Structures are given as C-alpha cells and as structure tokens.
Amino acid sequence: MEYTQLGRTGLKVSRLVLGTMNFGPQTDEAASHAIMDAAQASGINYFDTANVYGWGENKGRTEEYIGSWFAQNGGRREKTVLATKVYGSMNRQSETWPNDDKLSALNIRRAVEASLKRLQTDYIDIYQFHHIDRLTPFEEIWQAIDVLIRQGKILYAGSSNFPGYKIAQANETAARRGMVGLVSEQCLYNLAERRAEMEVIPAAQEYGLGVIPWSPLHGGLLGGIIRKEFEGGRRASGRAAEALADPVTRGRVQAYEDLLDKHGLEPGETALAWLLTRPGVTGPIVGPRTPDQLASALRAVELELSEEVLTSLDEIFPGPGPSPEAFAW
C-alpha cells in the first residue's frame, strides 16, 4: 500500500480511504468487521464514517460497528486514522427540535460526545463538517473545535461538500484565531464529474488541504455498468441510472468501456487509478460491500495508466479546464 501525507498535517495516510457508508444498511456487523480486518491487513489505515450513517431509524449504527470492531483490540484503533462527520440530525424526523443539527457549538459538543461513545474511542483523528452551515459563523464553529482539540477529543478538523469560497472563509477565520483550520476536504470528484477542478481543488491546494474524493465510480456509472446490463447483471439505479438516461452521457460511458476493453483494463479499477493521478488528491474513498470489492479497489493502487490511456480518458470525459479560464464557459 502506498502512503502519503494528509495535507499540511504530519499524518501519513493510505492512498485509499475505506468508506463505511454501507456498513449497516447493506453489510451486517460480521461482514463489516471482516472488511475492516482485510483493509487494515492490506495497509489501509484511513477509515471514514459519519454519525448519520446507518440512515433512517438506524442512524449511528455504522459508528457502532466500527466501535465494536475497535473493542476487539489487537491494535485496531492505534493503527487507524479515524474520520467521522457532524451536521445532520440524529433524531427521528418526528422528534426533531432546535439545535439538534448543523454546526452550532451546542450541536458540535453533543455530537462529538455521542460519536465517541458509539465508536468506543476517546478521540477522533479528523472531525469533519459534513456540509456547510449558512447560519452559524465560522468564529463560533472554530471556538467549539478549539475546545475539543484542547480536551484531546479531536486532533484535526476537515470539511465535506464545501465550495471553494467556504474553504477560504473557514481557513482565513481559523488563521485569525491562530488555528490550523481545515486539513482535508471530501468532495464529489470522478471522471464523469470534474467540476471540483474549477474551485474546490484549487482552494484545497492553496490552503494545504488533502482532497478525499467520494463516489469515485459515480454511483456505479464508471464500474462497467453498460457491460453488466448487457450481460444480464445488476441494472443501473440511482445516480447512474439518471446519468445513463442522457444519450450524451451514455455515449461517453460506452466509449469509456470500449477504450478499457481495448487495453484490457477493468472500469472500476481504472476510475480509481485515474483519481490517484490527479493533482492534490490524497486518496479516493472506496465503500466496499464485500471483501471482493475491496480486493478490486486495492488493485487500483498498483495500476499505472499509460499516457495514451490518460489522454483518451480526458477526451472522453473532458474537464472544465484550468481556473479561471474554466469560468468563461
């Protein structure tokens, strides 16, 4: 496994990030533990989760699975760089009340204590803001984070789904307080969705944040979806189905699969390998539902794409171009 430094921190993290979103909704506790064991044995040391994962009536279940895995000891927690998130309400829809969500100091304080309990640990390496909060000022957010850092309950703060200007606002506010600020940004970024190249990734690079792309296969669109349909396998759903309904997108995906067939490459592994070539990217998040899916993701780290393939991929899925020229579109 390859390792890199996370932004401007001293943390050494794996070039793949284990996403745990499927633990609970699609993968039971025993299988989740098996995947985490396999990931750690392969050298993946960066695990990502969120307090709301488990979803619906089962919010928090994913963190609980990770906590029960840590409780088996064997150095599991010590070998893991643990990231979780705060923002969404943890209550049932009928039981919401003011201050039970978003990034108020009160919710941050309550949320971190609840996550620590579910995760069965006394600290979180990277505590991430799951979305921007348009109402809470960053002065309040950083005051709450500063308290948690001083208490030893978190080490760093990160963001998720932030636009470039919010990354700048957050870190400028932190700098005025003498704080490190955000150290990572999780953003939607893949071959089929490259708008992060316009502002988010340049802002992250300017402020020294590690970039952690989520949905590297764009909901399965880049995982050989047309081939699977043709072979009678799982049909596209969700984001992938919506995208394939557009003839232009379907044509690009077909060209993508044809290109990889020509070069003897697997679509999912290629999409991950492409992200690993992108400037500023620390490592994409992979969310395996089975050990076999994890094994496929691991092969991507060793895959070297030729210049011919990289050029062809840019032709099929052109990016927006360099900023600020991209804004002339």
Rank of each mutant, 00 (worst) to 15 (best):
300 A>P: 05
315 E>G: 15
252 R>Y: 12
298 L>E: 03
254 Q>K: 13
309 V>Y: 07
273 A>Q: 01
305 L>G: 01
301 V>N: 02
295 A>I: 00
270 T>Y: 06
311 T>R: 13
267 P>M: 06
300 A>T: 05
302 E>W: 06
265 L>V: 05
275 L>H: 00
259 L>H: 12
280 G>I: 00
243 A>V: 06
288 P>R: 04
267 P>D: 08
265 L>Y: 02
251 G>M: 04
307 E>K: 14
249 T>S: 12
241 A>L: 13
244 L>Q: 07
298 L>Y: 02
245 A>C: 10
314 D>C: 10
258 D>V: 10
309 V>E: 07
244 L>S: 07
244 L>H: 05
291 P>C: 11
250 R>C: 10
266 E>H: 11
290 T>P: 12
263 H>G: 04
271 A>I: 03
309 V>A: 08
298 L>R: 00
314 D>L: 13
262 K>M: 10
244 L>T: 12
282 T>C: 06
254 Q>I: 07
278 R>W: 02
277 T>Q: 14
279 P>R: 04
292 D>Y: 13
275 L>Q: 02
302 E>H: 15
243 A>S: 09
267 P>L: 06
242 E>F: 12
253 V>S: 09
285 I>Y: 02
307 E>Q: 14
261 D>M: 14
315 E>D: 15
255 A>S: 12
263 H>W: 10
245 A>E: 14
301 V>M: 12
244 L>W: 01
295 A>Y: 00
315 E>I: 09
315 E>W: 10
268 G>V: 01
